[in-house]
């Protein structure tokens, strides 16, 4: 079931069931990696890879909610940073603190998402600017809270989600907890986007706001909810990345654009109306696989930047071309 077919069932009937090119891209990239480095085909190889990509994959799937509704969320990276810094400040080396800190961080995330949504919906500030302002503000808040440098460690109970591997499992030998998180949250986000009324309204709002309003969709509520979902996934991504990497003051910087890139590679249409959670997760995998491959090829950082830029433009240009050929 391809996501594109949902809002436009009529269009789906006309064309043959076709596969989103991002899946082909991911398969090709992974094949190339295995050819270059056979160790990647072993469980430690591909599990490490999946573990690495989990934070970005969950984040992108959440950011997709805002993209499908027709907006941008640039604040997600700063929410990740705030989550990690805030948790380390509050934990004060108490392993039991994790059980109240994560729910508290989710609440803070929800409030941030709510503010983003309210500012966009009622103050009519374009989401690009509203969430840019939020990004700058939250980075400042994280700095103020910590005094500019991390002030505490994350307890092992907190780092469990991003760092721990369950070992001695038959066939796959080991299973990182992060990968379980990816499957669980990926499924929830897929269900929310593609199997609920909310998901349909999200597509409708992104496709044409006025039409959706006329059709009785509570546009403001839908958009605000999208920002809340995005912020909540950013908190989850922060917990996982913090778990994997430990505390640093700029841990989330740059993730906002990576998330948008992953969604775009997965075929999401900026300014709304189109997007699929599985394809976005595949987009995140593709992005990370590209990095891994370029690394294996021993290409210097500058070359990686150029390749990334070309792929970004190429992916969108290709999607537009395909849509045009399919008669939109």
């Amino acid at each position: 079931m391809s996501a594109q077919s949902l809002p436009r069932p009529a269009a789906a009937k006309r064309s043959l069931p076709k596969i989103n090119p991002v899946y082909v891209l991911v398969a090709a990239l992974i094949l190339a990696i295995i050819v270059m480095n056979p160790a990647f085909g072993e469980p430690t190889g591909y599990m490490n890879f999946l573990k690495r990509v989990t934070a970005l994959a969950i984040l992108s799937a959440g950011a997709l909610y805002v993209i499908v509704s027709g907006g941008f969320d640039l604040s997600v990276g700063s929410i990740m940073t705030l989550t990690v810094i805030g948790s380390s400040m509050l934990a004060s080396n108490d392993p039991n603190s994790t059980y109240w800190i994560i729910p508290l961080m989710l609440c803070i995330g929800a409030v941030i998402g709510l503010i983003n949504g309210l500012v966009v919906s009622y103050l009519k500030v374009p989401s690009l600017i509203a969430t840019l302002g939020m990004m700058i503000t939250l980075n400042g808040v994280a700095f103020m809270w910590s005094g500019g440098a991390p002030r505490g460690y994350l307890p092992d109970t907190f780092r469990f989600f991003g760092r721990y591997n369950i070992t001695d499992i038959p066939v796959i030998t080991l299973l990182p907890v992060a990968v379980i998180c990816l499957v669980v949250f990926g499924t929830i986000l897929w269900w929310g986007m593609h199997r609920t009324n909310f998901g349909r309204m999200l597509h409708a709002v992104g496709d044409n706001q006025q039409a959706a309003r006329l059709a009785g969709v509570p546009v403001e509520r839908v958009r605000i909810s999208a920002f809340v979902v995005s912020a909540l996934t950013a908190v989850l991504a922060g917990v996982i990345l913090g778990g994997r990497a430990g505390v640093s003051v700029d841990i989330g910087s740059g993730f906002e654009l990576q998330a948008i890139t992953a969604a775009v590679i997965g075929g999401a249409q900026l300014l709304g109306g189109r997007g699929s959670v599985p394809a976005t997760i595949a987009g995140a995998l593709a992005l990370e696989a590209i990095f891994t491959l370029l690394n294996l090829l021993g290409l210097a950082q500058p070359v990686r930047l150029v390749v990334q830029g070309l792929i970004l433009i190429g992916a969108v240009a290709f999607a537009t071309y395909q849509r045009k050929r399919a008669g939109r």
Binding site: A39, N48, A245, I251, T292, N295, L296
Partner: peptide, 14 residues
């Protein structure tokens, strides 16, 4: 970047 550092070392260890 901590995450990237970890990834690089993991890749070399592989």
């Amino acid at each position: 970047d901590n995450a990237k550092t970890k990834s690089i070392v993991e890749d070399y260890l592989q």
